[in-house]
Simulated assay, not measured.
Amino acid sequence: MANDKDSISNLRTESSKTDKRKQSLYFPESMLQEIKEEAARLDRSLSWVVQRAWKISRLEIKKLPSVNEVDGGEDDDEG
């Protein structure tokens, strides 16, 4: 039975690149409108536009400091 479980786990890992599970993402209304306009201009889906945006920007996003790396405790939650 362990082999079956391992096989399923490996299959999920291998297929994660094409995983089409539904996800909910929330955008400010103005940003969503811009994405919709670009999708229409490009004759592509909203999903395609967001995926391309991620691929183009991910290296820049990885340069951002994590919450634990920020000095000074100037979080938006603190007042």
Rank of each mutant, 00 (worst) to 15 (best):
L42K: 12
V50Q: 03
V49H: 01
S30Y: 06
R52D: 06
K22Y: 12
Q23M: 10
F27T: 02
E34I: 12
K36W: 03
L32P: 02
R52F: 05
M31W: 08
F27A: 03
L25G: 07
R41E: 08
E38Y: 05
W54Q: 03
L25K: 10
A40K: 15
E34N: 14
E38S: 03
E37N: 10
M31L: 12
E38C: 04
L32S: 12
V50N: 03
Q33F: 09
M31A: 11
L32M: 12
S24C: 15
D43S: 11
A40E: 13
R21W: 07
V49L: 00
I35F: 01
L32V: 11
L32N: 11
E29I: 14
A53T: 07
W54H: 04
V50K: 02
A39C: 10
E38M: 06
E34L: 15
S30K: 06
A40Y: 10
S45R: 01
A53R: 05
S24E: 15
P28E: 13
P28C: 14
Q33R: 12
S47Y: 07
L46D: 04
A39Y: 00
K22L: 14
V49W: 00
Q51D: 14
Y26E: 10
Q23G: 04
M31K: 07
S30V: 08
Y26D: 09
W54E: 02
L42P: 03
R44L: 08
F27E: 02
P28L: 15
S30G: 04
R52K: 13
R41M: 09
A39N: 04
K22V: 14
W48N: 00
E38N: 07
V50A: 05
Q33G: 08
E37G: 02
L25C: 12
E38Q: 08
W48F: 07
Q33W: 06
E29N: 13
E29P: 06
S24M: 15
R21V: 12
I35M: 05
L42R: 13
E38L: 06
K22N: 10
W54A: 03
V49M: 02
W48M: 01
L46R: 02
V50T: 09
A39Q: 00
L46V: 13
A53M: 10
S30I: 06
S45W: 02
Q33I: 11
Q51S: 15
Q51P: 01
L25W: 08
K22G: 07
K36D: 07
I35G: 02
I35D: 00
P28Q: 15
R41D: 07
R21D: 11
K22D: 11
S30E: 10
R41Y: 08
D43T: 05
R44V: 04
E37M: 06
Q33H: 13
M31E: 10
Q23N: 09
A40F: 11
R21G: 09
D43R: 05
W48E: 01
D43E: 13
P28D: 13
V50R: 00
A53H: 05
I35C: 03
E29A: 15
W48R: 01
L42I: 08
R41P: 00
E37V: 04
M31Q: 12
V50E: 00
F27M: 04
S47C: 12
R41C: 05
A39M: 06
L46W: 02
S47K: 10
P28H: 12
